[in-house]
């Protein structure tokens, strides 16, 4: 059986080694990410930046879903773009839109799928999926049809599906954008119980208040890295400053 990925006490969260060296990513000659270098093993890592700063691309590179044009990415020493089998144990990724993530029509099938992919037999996978539902007190969701769930509930299904696979690092790509305050608070509470480490990507400083290490991305490059308080303050100031200007007029080349 997997180790319980959700815990209620205050167990120390474990960090993972995330190591990027001179990572760049181009699409059709246009540079999306430029010479990204950082190293961290904090348990709660946040990446902030404006829309279009390359945050989502970086999330996909970290998860090994796309290969950087140049540079080296290592998560706990693994090259996840090449080693997909290791990738499943190392990282899980939560996308912004649940309809882009949920593959199966019912909750139990969706949770079981990732587990069978890690080599579990069908009955074992179903058992472990049920176990995850129980941990979240959602055993009554088992046979629910995805199309009947609310948007917030779909987000929770995505979270449970990834948590069931117990990855060491959970990457969140603006996971709760557009949700109302109570739903967001409830989902954040589930997240805060996750015993693996988190890498949370967002444009909203409010999401990252209690995070250990932050990386600020601007126009595809690292603007600043550092502890939460200091970095969020300068980020907020800069965002307010730009907010007073009119760079929305600028068209990209």
């Amino acid at each position: 059986m997997i180790q319980a990925p959700i815990h209620s006490d205050t167990t120390q969260e474990i960090g993972n080694d995330v190591d990027l060296a001179a990572v760049s990513f181009d699409v059709d000659g246009q540079q999306i990410l430029h010479d990204i270098t950082f190293k961290t093993n904090a348990a709660r890592v946040g990446i902030v930046g404006r829309n279009g700063s390359g945050k989502s691309t970086l999330a996909r590179i970290l998860a090994g879903l796309i290969t950087p044009t140049s540079g080296v990415v290592r998560v706990n020493g693994h090259n996840l773009a090449k080693d997909r089998r290791a990738a499943l144990a190392e990282v899980g990724i939560l996308f912004q839109n649940p309809d882009h993530q949920i593959i199966f029509p019912t909750v139990i099938e969706e949770l079981s799928f990732g587990l069978t992919q890690t080599g579990q037999s069908d009955p074992d996978a179903a058992g472990m999926a049920q176990e995850t539902l129980n941990q979240f007190n959602k055993s009554h969701w088992r046979d629910a049809n995805i199309s009947t769930l609310s948007q917030g509930q779909k987000h929770l299904v995505c979270l449970m599906s990834v948590v069931a696979m117990a990855p060491k690092l959970l990457i969140l790509d603006e996971p709760f954008a557009g949700l109302d305050i109570p739903t967001k608070t409830q989902l954040n509470r589930y997240l805060s119980h996750y015993s693996g480490s988190l890498l949370h990507i967002t444009h909203d400083p409010a999401d990252l208040q209690s995070y250990d290490h932050l990386i600020w991305l601007d126009q595809g490059a690292v603007q600043e890295t550092g502890p939460c308080d200091q970095l969020l303050k300068s980020y907020q100031e800069k965002m307010n400053l730009i907010g007073g200007q009119d760079d929305i007029s600028d068209l990209s080349d």
């Binding site: 997909r84 990724i93 882009h100 593959i103 992919q117 080599g119």
Partner: peptide, 12 residues
């Protein structure tokens, strides 16, 4: 992409 994030066809 979501399919790939969870092992894709190769592991299937």
């Amino acid at each position: 992409e979501a399919l790939k994030a969870r092992g894709g066809f190769t592991l299937l």
